[in-house]
Amino acid sequence: MVEYNPKSWLNLLFHSYSRYVFRRLLPALIYVTVYTSLITYVFYELNIDFVSTTSVHSILGIVLGFFLVFRTNGAYDRWWEGRKVWGELVNETRNMALKFSVMVPLDHPMRVYITECISAYPTALKEHLREGVPTDMAKEMVEKLKMDDLYHIPNAIAKKLFTITNQFKKENTIDPEQYRVLDEQLTALTNITGKCERIRNTPIPYSYSMFMKKFIFTFIATLPFAFVTVYHYWTILIVVLILYILMSIELLAEEIEDPFGSDINDLPTDMLAVKIGKNVSEIMG
């Protein structure tokens, strides 16, 4: 995620992300430039008798604008919900560490292990939500935390914490009321994972995404015919500029609809995982 000053207009206008978007869209911009140039050349140089009108595309542009607004809002809602869920993770891990730190005696040998488990959870979760926890990292966590070698590493860590809490109850390290409180806290942790997986594994409906791209393609493919007899060779610049604007919005929506990745606009899960680890270590002492 990019950290920036929203009040600095110049930095925003010339930020490197603009160059990144331009590089991503460059092939499409080149194709459309060639396509529009050929149409303009044929109509202008051969003096073809054709009456163009922009009224149809003006109406279609309004409809397309509504579609893009809905598309962007839908993607942003997923991004913002993901941020709220990770905010819950920050709070729940702090609360869990606070309760363990008070309920478990300072000289108990499991305090350090509990700290390592809670600190490892957000790191395992962020990798799980990307391409899955890397094999090397998963193996290291399994060996370090002495937990079951499960495919779902966050579940393996949560299971270990549940096991420890249940053991504390049997040993009378904590009383039944404290056990209930810790059980609710651990349940909240797994609920957060489920919320993240719901966002990650439920993309925008295929048909909507497909027809959105088809709509943009059709609009751009027919746009030169509306402008060519009025703007002549300026049509090339106008069509390419409109394509850049429309596809930039679609590209942004594609990035933020999966907020747990490593794209420039995705959530700062790496930073949050480190932050949680530091907070937990500080709380547990």
Rank of each mutant, 00 (worst) to 15 (best):
G61A: 14
K169L: 15
I157Y: 05
L186N: 04
E184I: 10
P122N: 14
T190W: 15
T135L: 12
D258N: 08
L189D: 02
S18A: 08
L10N: 02
K160T: 10
Y31G: 13
F162E: 04
D148S: 11
Y206R: 09
Y76L: 13
S207C: 11
F100N: 00
F225H: 09
G82E: 02
G87V: 05
M1H: 03
V2F: 14
R130D: 01
V32H: 03
I164F: 05
E131D: 11
D266K: 05
T123V: 15
K159Y: 08
R130E: 00
H232S: 11
T123A: 15
H15S: 10
L237C: 07
R180M: 13
E140P: 01
S119M: 13
D149F: 05
I216Y: 02
I192S: 15
Y179W: 15
V51R: 00
L145Q: 08
N155V: 10
I192R: 14
V21P: 01
S52H: 03
N191K: 06
A226W: 03
M210A: 13
L38G: 11
T218C: 13
P205V: 15
N191H: 07
F219A: 02
S262N: 11
F43M: 15
K195I: 07
T54C: 12
I164K: 00
S119V: 06
Y76D: 03
E88Q: 15
R19P: 12
F70D: 10
F225Y: 10
V228C: 11
M210E: 12
F66H: 06
K84R: 06
L129T: 04
K159D: 07
Y231S: 07
D77P: 01
E184A: 14
P176K: 13
A188L: 12
Q167I: 06
Q185E: 09
K213Y: 03
D148L: 11
L60R: 08
R24W: 12
E88C: 13
G194W: 06
T173H: 06
L150H: 11
I30H: 05
H152R: 12
I174H: 03
H57C: 02
L267D: 00
F14I: 04
V69H: 05
L64P: 02
V133N: 00
G82R: 01
L186S: 08
F217D: 12
S248C: 07
R198Q: 07
F217R: 07
E140Y: 07
E143V: 07
V90P: 01
T36H: 03
D149P: 04
L60W: 04
Y44E: 01
F50K: 02
M141H: 06
K169N: 14
P122F: 09
R200A: 09
I283R: 07
L26K: 04
R111F: 09
E3K: 06
E116Q: 12
L267W: 00
V104F: 00
E3N: 08
F14L: 10
T33K: 09
W79F: 14
V34N: 11
I39Q: 02
V34Q: 12
V102N: 04
Y41I: 13
E184K: 10
P224R: 01
T269N: 08
I264L: 13
I220G: 08
S209N: 14
T54S: 14
D263Q: 10
T36N: 12
F219N: 01
R180Q: 12
Y31I: 05
I114A: 00
Y244D: 03
F225R: 06
